[in-house]
């Protein structure tokens, strides 16, 4: 099992990079850009085989940041492409991240029903 301090350091470092990008590119890069950028770049790095080592050392520190979400998308696509060919390339990424995406949408909807913004 990955020690907690490694998750803290790797996770913290990935967030730190995001903060530096946002602060030095104000006002061009918004939180939305960070979300999109981390997933996309995470997937590309993962596709080249360089993200798995980070997950091995950092555990949740590498999996929890959105680059880890991109890693999941890439690995899902690669594995499914291996076993099912083109159909796998199409479905693999979404399938591997389906739990997270669905959870976010369902919880988001429920939260919207239960809570009102700022009251």
């Amino acid at each position: 099992m990955v020690p907690l301090y490694m998750a803290f350091i790797i996770g913290g470092a990935l967030c730190l990079i995001g903060q530096i990008i946002m602060d030095f590119t104000k006002p061009k890069i918004t939180p939305g850009h960070i979300l999109v950028g981390y997933i996309t770049i995470g997937a590309i790095i993962s596709g080249m085989g360089f993200y798995q080592p980070l997950v091995d050392i950092g555990g949740a520190g590498a999996a929890v940041p959105l680059s880890g979400f991109g890693h999941l998308l890439a690995q899902g696509a690669i594995e499914a492409a291996d076993s099912k060919g083109i159909l796998g390339a199409l479905s693999g990424g979404v399938a591997s991240t389906a739990a997270g995406i669905t959870a976010a949408i369902v919880f988001g909807y429920v939260a919207a029903v239960l809570f009102n913004p700022k009251d």
Partner: peptide, 19 residues
């Protein structure tokens, strides 16, 4: 504040660091 913020900027509960 809140009617303008949602029209011009971000959703109220979205976590953003204001410039």
């Amino acid at each position: 504040h809140y009617s303008a913020e949602r029209q011009f900027r971000f959703a109220i509960e979205q976590g953003v660091q204001r410039s």
